[in-house]
Each structure stands twice: as structure tokens, then as C-alpha cells.
Write a protein that binds this DNA or RNA. Sequence first.
DNA 1: CGTCACATTGATGCCTCTCAAAGCTTGTGG
DNA 2: CCACAAGCTTTGAGAGGCATCAATGTGACG
Lengths: 210, 210
Amino acid sequence: MKPDNQSSASDTTETALSDERAIGSVVPTRRDLRAGTALFRQGDASIGLFYLLAGRMRLVRVTPSGSEVALHTISPGEFFAEASLFSSSYHCDAIALGDSVVLIYGKKALIAEFNRNPEDLWQFAGRLARQVQGLRTRLTLRQIRSATERVRQALLLRCDESGFWKTEGTLKQFGAEIGLTHEALYRALARLERSQAIIRLADGIVVKRK
Amino acid sequence: MKPDNQSSASDTTETALSDERAIGSVVPTRRDLRAGTALFRQGDASIGLFYLLAGRMRLVRVTPSGSEVALHTISPGEFFAEASLFSSSYHCDAIALGDSVVLIYGKKALIAEFNRNPEDLWQFAGRLARQVQGLRTRLTLRQIRSATERVRQALLLRCDESGFWKTEGTLKQFGAEIGLTHEALYRALARLERSQAIIRLADGIVVKRK
DNA sequence: CGTCACATTGATGCCTCTCAAAGCTTGTGG
DNA sequence: CCACAAGCTTTGAGAGGCATCAATGTGACG
């Protein structure tokens, strides 16, 4: 996570990458960012698409009056700034919250690739469409006020046909993902178990029909 | 909003449409749905992309155990089932909540169009990317518990450089969009005005620097 | 002028957040 | 192998805030 060498004037290093993470024939470049460093700022000419390997990035828009509005926090494994491919500059700042590693897919290279090989563009669009789907679902889930019901629905969305959901990561994390404090989550789980809506196992949870 | 004629065995009518709403050369078909009618069901072969002209549609997934999970509610002006273009069948049910009118863009026609004219695919992808952006922002906004602060941030996101936001639609609607009851919204606005964070005008709101 | 939907403010209760504390698990080092 | 630390898990007590119910004012429209 720490930069392997030092570029002249900034807290970032950039390394070429011969990677299996290529999009079509576009091989990303790796860049290491120290905590607090900006990857790009509002108004900068857009240079490409990003993928967060490690760390955490915050996207914020600074209003003319100086107020900050948080747009999104990027977690490892996420692509971000997709929309910048379609416009000439960024509409927000991207700041590294902790030491971070991002992959950069050059804009020109990507566009050339998509022109050359529309099949890649098709796949890219597919990824976006599924993302839209997932985000809408999450948004709908957040509409549910009741912690108990929200947890139940979240479990229903994630479990397989038999109703089993294998725990991935910690429950605390799960709580954060669905917008609950861990205490609220634990209490909701306890309530669901008491009412026999779920059965808690060592490695997961079984959701029962209502 | 009411069907103009009756098809033989169902509560839907379908009409060809020579429209300016075409995507590339793909002209949509219009379909009228009575309240309660399904536009498609989980497992149906995907026939295309939809656009809601009027009414309201609900997307729900029915779990094997019979529980329903609401995925999204479509409002007029929204495209939906974009992801179905990339898979062979639907993963949820689409039910008309009220009498509704949808435009249908045939899947095969769209794919052919995108193959013939990648520029259209590029624009389609751009729309998806901006949608992802907007949804992420909305999701982040929902993380803010405090009604007052959520309203302030929502206003900051929507106002122009001078801090002015022209009211569009009703405030009640605005409340629903950001996940607040209208009462909570009015109280938040009153609080913001009292603390001089905003100024309310007849046709909009001015957000002041903090 | 009456109706209907929006706008606004009041009172109340529930639910989740917050702060706190204790049991549990895992990993690390002596 | 044991001891200690750190983070997850779990439950308790208290408080604040938003939803809910309720009532009134206001504007548009026929």
C-alpha cells in the first residue's frame, strides 16, 4: 500500500501494469495515492476510468459557496468515474481517504478500443445496466424504515433458492451496507430469530417463508 | 390513460407509434396496461427495453418461498429493464400499479441498431453511466439521518452557481424524492430558514454559504 | 363558491442512534 | 501453551428525531 518509489513533486506514483485486468486490449496503469491526495479535481480534463484496488476514495462536490457535498465513497473493487468517459471534465473531486491504489484506464485508449471492438462497449454497457439495477434495489431497500423488515428483505435478496445465505465478511459490514448500525442489525437478527423468521447458523442464515 | 380499444383476451392494447421518441431508427411500440396487469414476469423471455409514459409500475421479485421483495417503483419518464437487454429473461415481475402507458423498444431491433450504429450504443451507455452517478449520489444522500442536513445537501446538489434552486414540482414530491415525509420536509425548511441557511422565495429557494 | 391538493404547524409515540459494558473469537508473541 | 490485544458480537439504558395522526390555512380550478 505504500508507494514503492517517489515521483518528483507529489504523493503519487504511477506504474505500468501488464495485467489480466485489461478491458479488451486496454491495459490499466497503476497509481498509488497517499492519504489526502487528490486523484482528480472538479474541472480537470477527464483522463479515464478508474478502478479501486485498495484503500478508499471519496467523491465530493464543492459548491461555489464552499460547502462540500459527499457524492459517494468508493470501496475496493469498484469502478468509478464512468460518466467522465462521456464528458470532457470531472464534476467532482476524488480524494484518497487512506493510502490507496487505483487502476487507470486511459480515456482515449478506451474509446479507441470501443470503436474498434463494439463488443467490448456492449459488455461495458451491460455492466452499467446491472449496476443501475443493483443501485435501484439498494435505494428501494433503504426506503424501509423498520430495521427488522429491512434486514429480512436484504436477506431475501441475497439468499439462494433454499433460503440460505452464506455470511460474507462480518455482520457489522453487512449492517453498514444496508444502512444500519451494528447494534440495530444484531437486535433485528435477534428479533427475526425469536419470531422464527430466520435460523442462524455458524456460517450463514436461513430465511424462512413468512 | 384509459385504453383506447380492447384487445381480445387481455387488459392490454398495443399500438404502433410513429414517434420522435425513437432510439436511432428503433421506433417504440405503445402499450396500455390496466391497473394490476403484468407487463412481464420473472422468467419470461426478455422482449426489450421499456419507457413509462404515464401511470406507475412496480418491479418485484418473488422469492421461491413466496415472499415479495420490492425492487423499484417506476415513475413516468423512466426507462426500465435496461439490464434485460443483456440477459435472455427477466429477473423480476413488472406490475402496473395504476392504469399505465409504456413504450416498448424491441430487443432485437435495438441490438441490430446498436450493431449497425455503435454511436447509438455509445449514447445509450452514456445514459446508463449518468444514471449510475445519480443513483450513487441519491444513495449517499440517504445516509444522512438528519432531515435538516439532508435537505440542505439536496438543495446544494440542485441549485445553480448563485445558490438558487427553482422549485420543480411540489415540495411534497421533493420530500418523497429525498426520502422524507412532507411534514419532516416542511419542518426542515422552516428550521433552515430560521437559521438563515436558506431564503425561501415564491418560485424557489436560495441556499446560502454556511 | 366549493372542492381538492398542497402547505404548514402541533402533539404524540415509537424506533433507531448513541453511549456503555461484557462475552467471544482470532491472532500474535513470549 | 498461555496471555494479552484487538475487533466482532451481543445486550442494556437513555435520548432525540422522524413518522404518524390531526387540524387549519392557502391556492388553483371549474
